[in-house]
Amino acid sequence: MSLRGLVKRFDTKLAVAGLDLDVPAGSFYGLLGPNGAGKTTTLSMAVGLLRPDAGQARILGYDVWTDPAEAKRRFGVLPDGVRLFDRLSGAELLAYHGLLRGMDAAVVDQRARELLDVLELGVDNRTLVVDYSAGMKKKIGLACALLHGPRLLVLDEPFEAVDPVSAALIRDILQRYVAGGGTVVFSSHVMEVVERLCSHVAILAAGAIRLNGTLGTVRGDRSLEDVFVQVVGGRTATGSELAWL
């Protein structure tokens, strides 16, 4: 995935200000940033959900905005803060996504069952997705993104609201996916997860990349958290403020 000069302005606020990012194929790429840094906006523009004011986004060589059909065929997305078609059951939702991607019905059936089984969502569970818990919704969303076997996964906050057991499961799945040649880009603000999983990291603040590269070069000999706080420019409590607490 390669992003060049992406700009997005909301009313008066500049959400993403000329962002460049190259995600090498086969990498496990963590996009870090504080709240409001523009992570979701960037990823939405990268996958064609939000039209950028300027710049381009290429995925596996296809421009998302000039050749959307080819580009969209090659990646899977798990957007954050976006509803699913939640009046369908899990199985129905997967079938819907599969057919929407132009897959063969028999393949959809087989893969959907496997995904429901592995993600412990229940193959014969007919509960509507709207009645799922937050963690289950994340898992079914991930299943939808994986279903068509894309070469690139773009995941926005995949570990949010997920219980530790499911998180471990998702980590395993993603690691195996990358080991098999896939590329994962995901956003998070949880350092531990990024430190544990990623081969590459980019730190995003105020709509621009502040630091990026392999985990080793970004981190150096410090902890990722220290680097992050320093780059983003967070303040540390000195003890003099909020004395009344």
């Binding site: 129905e92 079938a95 599969g98 014969d124 569970n125 007919r126």
Partner: peptide, 13 residues
């Protein structure tokens, strides 16, 4: 919980 279904996902949809 609704009654479990054994039909394949595509047929359910």
């Amino acid at each position: 919980a609704a009654a479990p279904s054994v039909r394949p996902p595509v047929d359910q949809l």
